[in-house]
Amino acid sequence: MQLNGLIHTLPKELKLLIATFVVILSVGFFTGLLFVSETSSANPNGIEEQYLGNETDEDATVMKFKKSEKEMLTLVHGHILSMSIIFFLLGLILSTTKLNKKWKLFLMIEPFISVVLTFGGLYLLWKGMLWTKYIVMFSGTLMTLTFSFSVLIILKQIFSSTKALSK
Rank of each mutant, 00 (worst) to 15 (best):
I113Y: 05
K104C: 00
T132L: 08
V115E: 05
E110I: 14
P111I: 00
P111K: 04
V116N: 03
S114Y: 05
G128N: 12
L122Q: 14
I109E: 00
K101M: 14
M129P: 04
F106S: 02
L107A: 08
K127W: 04
L124T: 13
W126K: 10
G91P: 05
G121H: 06
K104F: 03
K98Q: 09
L105I: 07
F138D: 14
N100Q: 06
L125R: 08
K98G: 01
V136D: 12
L117G: 08
T118R: 09
N100I: 04
T97P: 13
K104G: 06
G120N: 10
L94A: 02
K127Y: 05
W126A: 01
L92S: 08
T97D: 03
K104D: 06
L92P: 04
L105M: 11
T118M: 08
Y123C: 07
F138I: 15
P111W: 05
I93V: 11
T141P: 12
V116L: 11
M137N: 04
S95K: 01
I113S: 11
L92M: 10
K133S: 09
I93Q: 00
F106R: 07
G120P: 03
L92T: 02
L125F: 09
L99C: 06
V136C: 09
L122M: 09
L99A: 07
K98W: 02
E110Q: 04
V116C: 07
L92C: 10
N100R: 02
G140T: 06
G128E: 09
E110A: 13
L125E: 06
L90F: 07
V136W: 08
W131A: 15
L124Y: 13
T118V: 14
W126Q: 04
E110W: 13
G91A: 09
G120E: 09
L125Q: 03
L130N: 14
T132F: 13
G121P: 06
K101A: 12
G91L: 04
S114E: 08
F119D: 07
L124I: 07
L142N: 01
V116G: 06
L90H: 05
I93F: 09
T132I: 11
P111H: 04
I113N: 00
W103V: 12
G140Q: 03
I113C: 01
I113F: 00
T97I: 01
L130G: 13
K101G: 13
K102P: 07
K102N: 15
K127V: 10
T132V: 00
L89D: 01
L107I: 08
S139G: 04
N100C: 11
K101L: 14
K104P: 10
T97C: 03
Y123K: 03
T132G: 06
W103T: 11
Y123R: 05
P111F: 08
W126S: 00
G128V: 04
I135Q: 10
K101F: 12
N100T: 10
W131Y: 08
T97G: 00
